[in-house]
Amino acid sequence: MKQVVVTKDLVKKFGELRAVDRLNLQIQKGEIYGFIGPNGSGKTTTIKILSGLLRPTSGESYVLGCRIPDPSIFPRIGYMPQEVALYPDLTVSQTISFFGEIYGLGKKEMEKREEELLAFVDMKAKRKEMVSNLSGGMRHRLSLAVSLIHKPELLFLDEPTVGVDPELRTSFWEYFRDLTEDGVTVLLTTHYMDEASRCDRVGMIREGKLVAVGTPDQLKEKTNTQSLEDAFLHYVRRIG
């Protein structure tokens, strides 16, 4: 299987703090890879390094076959930051068309894409609404839609379902699954164990170190636990 993300002894230090500590990742094309770990364990830092927003202190990483940092991967990746990251003084429709233009989408393509994305996040009725007037969950949905605008091959989603209601969360996951069937790879972080169990593979991260990797079933088996949550606690406590 083709590896879309590979890191070798990736280290990121902020002063004395090792936010990422000799991280070795291999993510396969077409899988949903979930990062789980406590707050401050280095999930977001890793995603920021892989998408090119942060420079690692040492180590190598390859994304879509390119040694990063490399701007040539930008048109091929989608990034959804943890914060909402939208312009409050734009309408929903203007937000989508701005990012569409940034990605060089043609006018017709953009209109089509806007329809698809608004349908997917169930926001067609909100088209003319100002972003500043949207509820938190709505903004999150729009934020996800914006990350998908250029049909990226690889998606970095930092806590994509925070503040999203359960029904929509289910449809998000169905959509992620659809994407992977088209060969898209998804790397996401989450705090929800039910979501982690829907991932193809899970990486448990603690204090910048990858403490366990495997399918949800493998992790339960290895730790001899009934739920992923127990497996997670097992790993987190063992290191602590």
Binding site: F74, P81, E83, L86, I102, Y103
Partner: peptide, 13 residues
């Protein structure tokens, strides 16, 4: 602070 700059930084612009 919004994070929109980060979004632009990982885009082709």
């Amino acid at each position: 602070t919004n994070g929109t700059l980060d979004r632009l930084f990982v885009s082709p612009i």
